[in-house]
Computed example of a mutant assay.
Amino acid sequence: MVSPNKVVSPKEKLELIALIEDGTQTNKGYSVAKVKWNGKDAFAIRYDGDNEEDKGFPTTTNGYHASWFILPNEVSLPYLRFFVAQKDLIERLEKHLN
């Protein structure tokens, strides 16, 4: 499984800005990132893979490099609103449980 911090393909179009969800750490199986895609802000997602040899999905054309799938804003913005609300709720609950 490839660390999403190391996924920078395609180099000529993508710049990794920040990880929103690192699935290799949370065991969710997918990662989400804020990126620059052709110079514009965007969000991307990828399946992390099942084991150390698995490059996840998507990969470049020949499967040599792990890559990101760029989400359309119509898909990414509702997901991110849900993600932020869920994370905030979990943090508030943990304060009361500790």
Results as ranks from 00 to 15, higher is better:
97 L>A: 12
95 K>L: 11
82 F>G: 04
21 E>Y: 00
54 D>Y: 09
93 L>G: 00
14 L>V: 15
9 S>W: 09
84 V>Y: 10
72 P>D: 15
19 L>N: 10
88 D>R: 10
10 P>S: 07
97 L>V: 12
7 V>P: 06
54 D>G: 11
73 N>W: 06
10 P>K: 04
92 R>W: 00
24 T>D: 06
38 N>L: 12
55 K>I: 13
2 V>E: 11
73 N>P: 15
83 F>D: 10
45 I>L: 13
66 A>Y: 02
12 E>F: 08
90 I>V: 14
79 Y>V: 12
28 K>S: 15
84 V>F: 08
73 N>G: 01
55 K>H: 12
93 L>S: 01
75 V>I: 14
18 A>S: 15
26 T>N: 15
8 V>E: 04
91 E>R: 03
3 S>A: 15
93 L>M: 09
82 F>L: 02
88 D>V: 02
97 L>G: 01
7 V>G: 05
23 G>D: 02
62 N>C: 02
79 Y>G: 02
81 R>A: 12
4 P>G: 05
52 E>Q: 12
56 G>P: 06
87 K>P: 00
25 Q>F: 08
93 L>Q: 09
45 I>H: 05
32 V>F: 05
66 A>D: 01
2 V>G: 00
65 H>W: 14
87 K>H: 07
80 L>A: 08
3 S>Y: 09
60 T>L: 07
52 E>D: 14
78 P>M: 03
18 A>L: 11
15 E>Y: 10
9 S>F: 11
70 I>Y: 03
22 D>H: 03
38 N>F: 07
35 V>G: 02
87 K>S: 12
62 N>A: 02
94 E>A: 04
4 P>D: 05
74 E>I: 06
1 M>I: 04
